[in-house]
C-alpha cells in the first residue's frame, strides 16, 4: 500500500454535505496539505453549513465563521493579530465559495491582495449559489441552467476570469486546482504555504445537487473538465509567469463533459459547438500567455542546480 497524499485526516466524518460533494473533497485535500497549524475564516457558503450547527464542528482546526463579504478581511485581521502575538508559523486561510469570492467578497479580497497580506485565499468553485438554492453567480458558465436562469433564459454572459483578476494584482502565487487531481492540489497548497504574501487558489469542486448530475460522477466530472480544457490547471507566479500543469495530449470534446450534467440538458448541438469554440479560444490564449514563461522557469531551475 502506497499513499500519494498525506494520511493525516483533519476532516471528521458526520458532516452535513450532500452525497458526492466536491467541496468536502477540496477541504479534505487542503487540510491534508496545510496540517494542524491552520486557522480558517469561512464566510457564508456551503461550508458554513457543512461544518455543522453550534456547538459542533466537523473540522479539527479552529474556524471563524464570518459575514459573506469579509472572508479576506477577517483573515487579514487574524493574521495581523497572530503577528502581534509573535506567531509566524500559523497559516491563516480564507475559505470561500464562488459567490463569496467572485461576487460578494471580491472587494475584501482585492484589498487583501493589494496589501499583500500573508494569507491564503482558497475559493472552491461550484459555479452557483448552491447552498441557498442554485442561484446564478458570476462563476456560472455561459448557457448554464440555474433556478434564476431557467432553461428558456439560460445565462448569457461567460464565467468571470477570477484567476486573471487575481494575477492582475501581481500577488506572488495564483493557482487552479481540481478535486480530481489531489496530488497536484496538495502540492500547490504546500507551495502556497511556503510562499510569503497573498496566495490565491481556485479549486474546481463539482456539485451534484446543483449541476443535476449523479453523485458518483463528481470526480469524473472534475477530471473531464480538465481533459476537455474547460478548466485548465495552471499556476501564475508574481502575476506574470504562467505554468500550465496539465496539457491533455488528446483533449476530449466538451460534449462528454456537458452531457453528464442536467444543467446543460437544454443545449442544442449549435450551443455545444459554440461552447467548444470558446473553450478552444481560451486554451489558445492560455498557451500564448505561458509561451516563453516556462523557459524562464526552466532557466531558473538550471541556475539553481549550478
Amino acid at each position: 500500500m502506497k499513499l500519494t497524499i498525506p494520511e493525516q485526516e483533519l476532516m471528521q466524518s458526520g458532516h452535513l454535505a450532500c452525497q458526492g460533494c466536491g467541496a468536502t473533497l477540496a477541504m479534505r485535500y487542503a487540510l491534508k496539505a496545510l496540517g494542524q497549524n491552520t486557522v480558517l475564516s469561512i464566510p457564508a457558503c456551503c461550508w458554513s453549513v457543512i461544518d455543522g450547527p453550534f456547538p459542533y464542528s466537523s473540522l479539527k482546526v479552529p474556524i471563524f465563521h464570518t459575514a459573506f463579504e469579509t472572508a479576506a478581511s477577517a483573515a487579514s485581521g487574524m493574521e495581523a493579530g497572530l503577528e502581534m502575538m509573535g506567531d509566524k508559523d500559523t497559516q491563516v486561510v480564507a475559505w470561500a465559495g464562488d459567490g463569496g469570492t467572485f461576487d460578494i467578497g471580491i472587494q475584501a479580497l482585492s484589498g487583501a491582495a493589494e496589501r499583500n497580506d500573508n494569507i491564503m485565499y482558497i475559493c472552491y468553485d461550484n459555479e452557483a449559489y448552491m447552498n441557498t438554492g442554485i442561484q446564478r453567480s458570476s462563476a456560472t458558465p455561459r448557457l448554464s441552467w440555474t433556478t434564476t436562469t431557467p432553461e428558456n433564459h439560460p445565462k448569457e454572459t461567460p464565467k468571470k476570469d477570477m484567476v486573471g483578476i487575481m494575477a492582475a494584482h501581481r500577488i506572488p502565487y495564483v493557482a487552479t486546482c481540481s478535486v480530481a487531481y489531489p496530488e497536484d492540489m496538495v502540492k500547490k497548497v504546500k507551495k502556497a504555504k511556503d510562499t510569503q504574501g497573498c496566495k490565491f487558489i481556485h479549486v474546481f469542486a463539482p456539485c451534484p445537487t446543483g449541476w443535476r448530475s449523479a453523485p458518483e460522477t463528481c470526480v469524473k466530472l472534475a477530471r473531464l473538465a480538465v481533459q476537455t480544457k474547460v478548466f485548465p490547471l495552471y499556476e501564475i507566479f508574481n502575476g506574470v509567469d504562467y505554468k500550465i500543469n496539465v496539457k491533455p495530449a488528446k483533449p476530449k470534446p466538451v460534449t462528454e463533459y456537458v452531457k453528464l450534467q442536467g444543467r446543460f440538458r437544454h443545449l442544442t448541438e449549435a450551443d455545444i459547438k459554440q461552447i467548444q469554440r470558446t473553450v478552444d479560444w481560451e486554451w489558445e490564449r492560455l498557451l500564448k500567455m505561458a509561451e516563453g514563461c516556462e523557459e524562464t522557469e526552466e532557466k531558473k531551475g538550471k541556475k539553481k542546480k549550478k
Binding site: 471528521q12 458526520g14 458532516h15 452535513l16 455543522g52 456547538p55 464542528s57 479539527k60
Partner: peptide
C-alpha cells in the same frame, strides 16, 4: 444546552460532528 449557564463564554465549538451517523 438547556440554558445560559451551559453556553460557552464565546461562539466556539465544543465537540466534533461524529455523533451524526450519516
Amino acid at each position: 444546552i438547556k440554558g445560559e449557564k451551559d453556553m460557552p463564554a464565546m461562539a466556539m465549538s465544543l465537540g466534533l460532528m461524529d455523533w451524526n451517523k450519516t
